[in-house]
Design a protein around this nucleic acid. Sequence first.
DNA 1: TTAAAAATATGATATTTATCAGCTTTTAAA
DNA 2: TTTAAAAGCTGATAAATATCATATTTTTAA
Lengths: 228, 228
Amino acid sequence: MSKCEQCIIRQFNSLKHLSREELVRMSNCKTSKTIKKGETLFKEGERLKGIFCIKDGICKVSKMSENGRNQIISLVTKGDLLGERSLISDEASNLKAVALNEMQVCFIPKEEILKDLSKNPTFSMSVLKEMAKTLKQADNIIVDMAQKTVKQRLAETLLNLHSRFGTSIEDTINIHLSREDIANIIGTATESAIRLLSDLKKKKIIEFKGKDISILNHNELDKIAQGF
Amino acid sequence: MSKCEQCIIRQFNSLKHLSREELVRMSNCKTSKTIKKGETLFKEGERLKGIFCIKDGICKVSKMSENGRNQIISLVTKGDLLGERSLISDEASNLKAVALNEMQVCFIPKEEILKDLSKNPTFSMSVLKEMAKTLKQADNIIVDMAQKTVKQRLAETLLNLHSRFGTSIEDTINIHLSREDIANIIGTATESAIRLLSDLKKKKIIEFKGKDISILNHNELDKIAQGF
DNA sequence: TTAAAAATATGATATTTATCAGCTTTTAAA
DNA sequence: TTTAAAAGCTGATAAATATCATATTTTTAA
């Protein structure tokens, strides 16, 4: 099993602030897992016994609304930590996480992380910073959901996906989301998402074949996102 | 000037985890302010030099959307801390805070709080917990905004306002929000909020005279919030 | 390989919500 | 106190979005 001290992934998240000593201890209690596409990392209401450090792959983090619709809150990917919140608040998870492709993750037991949080102020400050950042993003999402049209949100989502998962080759978005997933990100009916995607295609702003989407006209997409 | 060691307000937030010593130090550098109704505590883009501890009064925390509409993200009241996030992330505030009535607040300089955060793990853990809680609420708001109808959101908002600001007398909601404020909480046009409030009044589910709103039929309102 | 299931697509229609206009009531300022 | 401004209200209409129906394509599993 790989060792945390030697793992480069930790450079991308708060774990980079742990000492060599702390990392060695973590290595001894962590477990590595492969999670297949479509598998669930954890469900809503589940009590997590630790946190995940994502070494590879992408998962969608979502929540059911009272209306019985699924809302995707975020996409979590290589380098991210997942599950810190439930651990910190010591409550069952309010979210569900499902792999979008094959994932490599490490699972670090709760006690280990809590120990480090209380002993290492640099680490806890880093986690605080990450949470402050997430909270800021959440504010932005709330405003978008409340005030923007579905068309604006779709355009914005495509731009976001491109900046996170875009490849330089042909401006392709390197993540395979179903139309339903896209609809669940922007908060609309699947049919509406499909229709709007087709519109953008007709107007030569995007191009797609199945789940491979690429952006042809960034400028125009940006204008749409801003409401023009 | 009042002393933090003797202030009961701190029992309601993370400051309760500070030692007597830390509180005395805080007392010496904090300032107390009265903020009048309608005045701004801080604006979007402003760099905060500390955090606010709310002793009395209520303020609305909001954010402008790219569409030029204002979205109220939260209502902050007696006992709450305000501004920790900008302090932690060391960025300009992404939010604006405006007093809804006369407020009594203490302002604690940034350096003081940061010192306590790095020295007192119980305090920083408590701040972490609060942020995890806020993040969970943010998730709920996102799902509501994305998936619920305006009618549902209004019903839910009225129930929330009642549980936070409700009085036992006649089930009155003890906070004076303009129709525009209500619209900006639920994310809709002011006219739509007014229309839906009138509908609820006609159906004897709520009653109001100006800004004094009371709930006549909790059950029914709850059903509406859930989409029936 | 083929049949069934799931995902994608599109049209027709209903529902929700925003916008605009004009009116009345309330609030605040001279 | 008077009067201008702001807030609240309502109707008419337009625009956005959801829903339902159905067809086609793609994927999956036997």
